[in-house]
Structure formats: C-alpha cells, structure tokens
Write a protein that binds this DNA or RNA. Structure first.
Lengths: 339, 339
DNA sequence: CCAGTTTACTAAACCGTTTTAGTAAGTGTT
DNA sequence: AACACTTACTAAAACGGTTTAGTAAACTGG
C-alpha cells in the first residue's frame, strides 16, 4: 500500500505539501499542485482512512446499531429499505458505515463507548428500545445521532418517525367513504409507540367523522398473525359486529382473514379489512390487502439528511423530530357499502 | 474520552506498561497488573480502536460489500438473514463490520482499495457479479474474502454456496414419490449460476428417477412473477402437458398459480407446483406453496467461520468452496397421483 | 535599497496505540 | 565479590496521516 511518504518522495516535496494538495489548502503553488496531483493519479494513491481518522477529527463513517429482534411492531423488510436509503444518501457524501456487531454493545449497552472507540462521526439507531440502558449517555453526549421510528430526543439527536395518525386517518376515511359506519380495530402489542399512536389516531379519526364505536369492537394485544386470528374470532362472536375492521399490522390482518374464512364468511363481501405495513405478501394473498404503506427508503434518506445536518452544523439547534407521510394502498379487501 | 496516557498517569506507570497489561504480556508484575486493571475498570477505559488499527495490524473489522440490486435470482429477504448470521458469529469474536456505502466503490469497483483504506481484516461480498471490474485484484491479493453464493476463487478467498442440485433433486423426488412422472420446469434468468445449476440439477434428477421430459415442458426466462405467469400459460396450452411443474423461484410459482387459476384449473388438484426460496408469502398464499428453503442465517454463520479461519491461518490452503444443504418444505401445492 | 509583506514551502508535533530495544534492580552461581 | 541471568519496567520509534509554527525567497512600496 502506497503512503503519503511515497508520494512525497516521488514528487520531491514534503509530506505536508502532499497533504495540503489533497485537502485543497491555498498555500500551494500551481505547478507543485499539478505535479503532486499527477503522481497521486499515476500511483493510484488513496489516503489511509484509519490514519486520517486518528489524526483529524472526522472519520467519515457512521455508526449503525441495529436490533434485529426489536419490540414487536417492526416488520422484517423494514431494515433493508432503511439501510438502502441511508446508504444512498450518506454514500453520496463519502460516508461508510460501521455496523456494530460486537456483542459487547448489546450486553452492556455501551453505545457511546463503541462510537468513540471507532470514532464515528454520527450514529443511527434502529429497533433500539427507549429503555435500553446506555441510551441516556448518547442523548446527553454531543454525538450526532438519529433514531429511526423512535421517540428519543437528546442534545444532538433527532428522531425520524412515520405519521401514524395520518395513516390511521386515511384508513378510516377510506372505510367512511365506502359507507362504513361501524368500524372495529385489532390492536398490536400494548404500550409501544406504534400501538399507542395508531390507537389514539383511530379514536381521533372516529371523532373527525362523527362515528362511535362499541368498546367490544376493539380487541387484540399483539402484532402477530395468531393475535389477529383470535381477535377476529372474538369480533365474529359479537351479536352486533362492525362492518369494517382496521388491523394495526398486516400480520394481524392475515390472521383476521383466516378467521373470517374459517367462519364461512368472505372478505370483503361480509367484512372489510385494512392492514398496516404493506408487506410483500399483501399483493399475493386473496383478497389482495388494502393497507398503509410506510416508505422505508424515504425514511433512510431522511434520517441520513438529518444526520448530515447535525454533523455539519455542530452548534445549530437540531430539529427534534421529523414526521414522514404514509400512504394508503387500496387493493381488494374493502367493499362499498350501500346504506 | 480517556486515553492510555490518562490511565498510565493515574496508575503511576508508563503507557507501555498499560498496553502490556491490556494485551496480556508476561513481563508485568502481579501488583502492577492488579493496580492498572483496577484503574482501567474504575475509569471505564476502552482503547481507541482506530489507534489500535493504525498501530497494530488487525482492525477487528470486516468489510461488507452489498449490492442491493443484484443479478436476478436473489430474493429480497436474502441479505437480512445472511447479515444476521454474519453478525452473530463475527460479533462473538469481537468484530464489527464496515459497510461500504461510499459510492466510489461501485463506480470504480475498487474493492481492494476500500479495504486497504479502512484496514479491514477481511471482506464479505454479497450480490456482487462475477464480472464486476476490480474483483480480480481482490482475488489475487492476500485479503481474506468470502463470496456469498458466488463462484469466485482466489488466493485467500472462498465462496459459500447452496446445493442447488440437492434442492432440485428433493423437489423432483417429492413429485416422484407422489406418483408424478410427467414433470415440467419454469426456468429463471438464463446464464447465471442458480439457473444453470437448477436446470442441470433438474436433468440429473430426471435421469436418476429414469424419467423423460418433453422439450416443450421447459419454459421461462426470468425469476419474476410475470415470467411464471407466461410460462404456465404456455404449458397449459400444450396438448400433452406435465402433471407437475418445478419453478426455479417462488415468484415464478406465484405467477404460475395465477395462470392456473385463470385457466379455470386448480392447484394442486389439476397441477402440482413446487417453488424455490421459501419466501414469507409461501405460507400465506393459497394453496400454501411447497418450496425449497435456503437457510440464510446458516449461510451467514458459515461464511463468518470461513472468514475467521482465513484470517487466523494466514498460510493454510483455503477450502475453496463450501456447499450448504437446502431443505424441501412440504406444504399444500402438490397432490398425490394415483396411477 | 531596505523594511515589510506575501507566497510557497517544510519541520516537527500530534492523534492513541503497539512493540522493540534498552536498563536498572534483584537473584543465583562460583 | 564479580559475573551472568532473570524480572519488571520504560523510552522511543512506528503506524499514516493533519496541522501549526516557522522560514527562506520573492515581491512590494516609499
């Protein structure tokens, strides 16, 4: 591997001069600059990023903490899209990622330590629980950080979230426009952000459309298929049942569809269903599932931009939270109701 | 951030002594060691990985090149599982990953440069095409590398692949045991490894079971749903058609199922289908799809182990290629044929 | 023509480690 | 008591860059 010394020797100048040429310092003569550049190109020289990090302050790398077994409510395909979005935007700016795998951070939650030790310029957290120990240190530090779909706010950290309220409202509005007035809901795992917000959003939307809803129309306590199945069975047993059911995840909706079929009923003829997440399978099951899509790539790109802003403006007050729009994808699981 | 100097000062020894304590050198007295360790714990000191990399040879990081738009034949969920497997095994050994996002490697294909510049101890390539420029440099270098589902072989590099032959054989055997003797195939995108091997495996398996197959029973030229749909329509138009069709991907199978249904036929009653990949949706479509599962997490773990071996035994002859078993997952898309 | 300024460069310190070579004190041998 | 050996430590160079302070040479103005 060629070093800056080799280049300096070949160009007949000092290493300082080479460094200045590379970093665009003004106090270098035109011919010298020219000469050095030629050698750099000719030798295919690239500065050692490690040495650069140690010497300078910037490492041009971003720490990535991913919990692949997150709190329920995050689906599988989630990470892929976000990473891809992060990569596109941060890659353009010359950043690489340090994906922290070393298990020590999981056991001890020493996120900040890991970041310092690898000297990353910023960090992205995905699927990291709010209560995770070690997170406060990050929030109190001056490390630029962004939390994906989180609600942490710190000195130099922001979070990027989806607008759950809007997602639910669009779903309810769709039901409403189709003539549905009796709307139920199968909820996900309690006490976590998506559940809380989607539930709250549900009530808000009902109010907006002046609808009421019987307490027994709200069931469910997990994001999994099984919970959707159980929830729908409960609903079907009711004497006065809703004509449309909003499911807080697609998995729930899949379970619900199973229960509907098992009861000898048909979706959307007997019951309209909307899911949440827009998993791949929504297009393939029958009926094709109407659902709320969250743009994961956009999430990644937005997070990246926020992070770059935090890194480049060390003393600006950070925007605390960025809310992304979501979109209802209409397919075949809802029918028009003629009242 | 605490440095080794701080610790040395606090302990009243030289930095060399602290370094030796940390790295377990023998020429340190028991009391000194004890004292230094106490201070390290008390101060929660962790050595700077960057400085360590620059000084020593090992950086305890692994380069990761991921092409999210790979040649057709790799499905979405693929990467997630492999990364998770890599993470588990390499994380245990104290490695972190450097995920190369900086677009310069894509445009110029300078994989090796990127690795040298970040001083990674090894590299993993996923979805990287065999013809990619810059790959030869890697293969000729002494950089430990492993190619996921590839067929590159280099000085210090191995590849980890799935046994396509076995996968197809299991599928055909399943058909055979159910009584099928007329078996067709819908192929994927031509001239890439999975297609070549699955096609070859198909003929091998037919020979093994002494079956013959009309040329017009082999159709298809892409891994996508649309291709499966078209392929199946072709097959259904034949006067003498197969009773079972092996699809080289699940997407193909989904398209095929659509064509079957559209023709007023039913799977598995009129036609048995087997897919390949075990996508999530196989469990949710109707009929639930019998398919070949490739264990992505196992792939990641195996790759990790191979890489660690390459790193730790710099002069051992590397095993050139590691073949992983695959497994037929039997669901509802094949029927027993009474002859 | 000389003091002051500008230009274009370099030497050397520094970043936080590891590692080699060196050394002083203690131990054992004769 | 003189010698070699061992033990337990340290100074300093090295890794490959950046950056500060300094310095000759060239240029400027009065």
């Amino acid at each position: 591997m060629k070093t800056i010394k080799d280049i300096a020797k070949l160009a007949g100048v000092s290493v300082a001069t080479v460094s200045k040429v590379i970093n665009g310092y003004p106090d270098i003569g035109a011919e010298t600059r020219q000469k050095v550049m030629e050698i750099i190109v000719q030798e295919d020289y690239q500065p050692n990023a490690i040495a650069k990090s140690l010497s300078g302050k910037q490492s041009h790398s971003i720490g990535l903490f991913i919990n692949y077994n997150p709190t329920p409510g995050l689906h599988q395909a989630f990470f892929q899209g976000v990473i891809s979005g992060l990569e596109k935007t941060l890659g353009l700016c010359g950043y690489d990622f340090v994906l922290f795998a070393d298990l020590r951070w999981r056991e001890q939650g020493n996120f900040l330590q890991k970041c310092r030790t690898r000297q990353v310029d910023g960090a992205v957290f995905m699927g990291i629980n709010k209560e995770e120990p070690g997170l406060t240190e990050v929030l109190e530090s001056d490390l630029p950080a962004v939390f994906i779909d989180g609600d942490q706010i710190g000195k130099r950290s922001v979070c990027v979230v989806w607008n759950n309220y809007s997602g639910v409202r669009q779903a309810i509005e769709h039901f409403y426009n189709l003539g549905h007035r009796k709307i139920g809901m199968i909820k996900g795992y309690p006490n976590i952000k998506p559940t809380i917000e989607r539930t709250e959003g549900f009530y808000q939307a009902l109010r907006q459309f002046s609808l009421t809803c019987l307490p027994e129309w709200i069931v469910g306590d997990d994001y999994l298929e099984a919970s959707g199945y159980q929830g729908m069975r409960q609903l079907l047993r009711l004497s006065s049942r809703p004509t449309a059911v909003f499911c807080q995840s697609d998995s729930i909706a899949v379970g619900a569809l199973k229960a509907i079929e098992e009861a000898g009923l048909k979706c959307p003829d007997d019951l309209s269903i909307i899911g949440y997440d827009d998993l791949d399978l929504c297009k393939y099951i029958k009926p094709r599932l109407t659902t709320v899509r969250q743009d994961t790539v956009l999430m990644g790109k937005t997070a990246a931009k926020a992070l770059i802003r935090l890194i480049n403006n060390p003393d600006s007050e950070p925007t605390k939270s960025m809310v992304l729009p979501v979109e209802l994808v209409v397919r075949d699981s809802c029918r028009k109701l003629y009242i």
